[in-house]
Design a binder for these strands. Structure first.
Lengths: 112, 112
DNA sequence: CGATATACCTTGACATATGAGGTATATCGT
DNA sequence: ACGATATACCTCATATGTCAAGGTATATCG
């Protein structure tokens, strides 16, 4: 089983911000990194990814620039802003709260 | 901070099914139970709740009937079906996978 | 006897993920 | 040399679920 769209929803931005917090990178690489880190359990559809970049940039959470080197010139790199880092911190906190809440509501069944 | 709509999305049905798995009950009571169990961190908007009941019933995961006793006659009770129990099991499994994936992608920051 | 809690429901608006489609270069095997 | 695949970007229309806003009615409590 993999993660459904409705479950992914709301976490996309946080995942991207978390990747960018480790250093500037570009869309394709972010997606590969996410796939590797999750053992293939989670990956973005391309439309999801680029929609998210647009949204994050419009919200001032990331900035974008084109690569300058030869073969990487076609890559669009992203950098997280200060506001983006603050948002990531808030997102992680919300995730911790979400995990506690859903564990309380869903995991009782395992105890039976 | 409380759980945002986009984070809640996709978990609503599972939460309702989990409540119904403990015994038949009705909308208002489900919402109160969820609020109590989460210390107020999570509660359904009424429109969300009744939209979910409709969806779950159409998908054959729950069945509905009106209460028969005096003051409870206005209550619409729901019961989880076999398909609903199977769905809940799958939902819990997906939640466990989601928790592992998001912990891997988001919690690195705590280690710094 | 007025305010609040209980209890149900519908409709339209909104945001996000995605399918489907498009463009172009680099790399690798044969 | 060249076809297949990977890399790398993008847009548009659509589907779905949550919610704000609105409505109705009974029960309870001060």
């Amino acid at each position: 089983m993999s993660i459904s769209p409705d479950i992914l929803r709301g976490h996309t931005d946080a995942i991207i911000l978390a990747q960018l917090a480790e250093g500037d990178t570009y869309g394709y690489a972010i997606n590969k990194a996410v796939q590797q880190r999750t053992g293939g359990a989670l990956g973005f559809k391309e439309a999801t990814l680029y929609t998210a970049f647009k949204r994050l940039e419009q919200n001032g959470l990331i900035t974008a620039y084109w690569g300058e080197d030869g073969p990487g010139a076609r890559r669009r790199y992203y950098a997280v802003t200060e506001a983006g880092r603050a948002q990531l911190t808030a997102d992680i906190q919300e995730w911790n709260e979400t995990r506690a809440v859903l564990d309380a509501l869903l995991t009782y069944k395992e105890e039976q």
